[in-house]
Design a protein around this nucleic acid. Structure first.
Length: 201
DNA sequence: TGTATGATCGCCT
DNA sequence: GGCGATCATACAG
């Protein structure tokens, strides 16, 4: 099955978990996404069309790249409905290809830290403004859906690093993946489990 | 293990 | 002028 970008961002965000993303052959399995749309006060497109967010109002299936905190480049996939400013932020990958190039770009060895966050991912995949608005089905991008028979355990929860619309459960992660930017909070920790050794960040 | 801070750009919703 | 869809580093305890 292909990824269908002519769907609402919420659906695309879920579909993308377990898919693969490569930029110029460097990338891996998508393990964390977040959905945004124009009705959402946390979205860049909430206030309407600007020079920065123009790609989000363009055709779906393209990249929207923005500068975060003046430092990092972050990558979104533009979704349907076209012209409505909806998209999916790619927040984390499990690296599978081009690890050496990621390590060189990041100045790190630990695979777990190469792409576990939107800014880190941008640096590891050499995302820049030059990729803004480009089609995701053409070079240098390659997006591959999970196999049809693949069982992908997707977990949803609240988004990270925003101050508005905190309640919306529009974050999706691959359940149990150590490559997410932050673990999904446990719903309720059973008493018997508390005190057991926990995985470190 | 947690809290604070600097870097530095685009937009003010 | 102030604040973000962030991250690395410096501290306190």
């Amino acid at each position: 099955m292909r990824i269908d970008f002519s769907s609402p961002s919420l659906e695309v965000a879920r579909q993308l978990i377990g898919a693969s993303l490569f930029v110029d052959g460097v990338g891996g399995t998508i393990v964390e996404t977040e959905a945004y749309d124009q009705s959402d006060p946390a979205s860049h497109t909430y206030a309407g069309h600007t020079a920065r967010n123009a790609a989000m109002f363009g055709p779906p299936g393209r990249a929207y790249v923005y500068r975060s905190y003046g430092i990092h480049w972050c990558l979104n996939f533009v979704c349907e409905p076209a012209g409505h400013g909806a998209g999916v932020l790619i927040r984390a990958l499990e690296p599978t290809a081009g690890l050496d190039r990621m390590r060189a770009r990041r100045g790190l060895d630990a695979a777990r830290l190469l792409c576990s966050g939107p800014g880190r991912l941008g640096q590891a995949l050499a995302i820049t403004h030059a990729l803004n608005g480009l089609r995701l089905d053409r070079k240098p991008f390659r997006v591959v859906a999970p196999r049809d028979d693949a069982e992908v355990a997707v977990q949803s929860g609240v988004r990270i690093g925003i101050s508005k619309s905190r309640e919306l459960p529009w974050r999706f992660v691959l359940a149990g993946s150590p490559f997410v930017s932050r673990p999904m909070p446990a719903a309720v920790a059973p008493a018997a489990d508390r005190g057991a050794p926990r995985a470190r960040r």
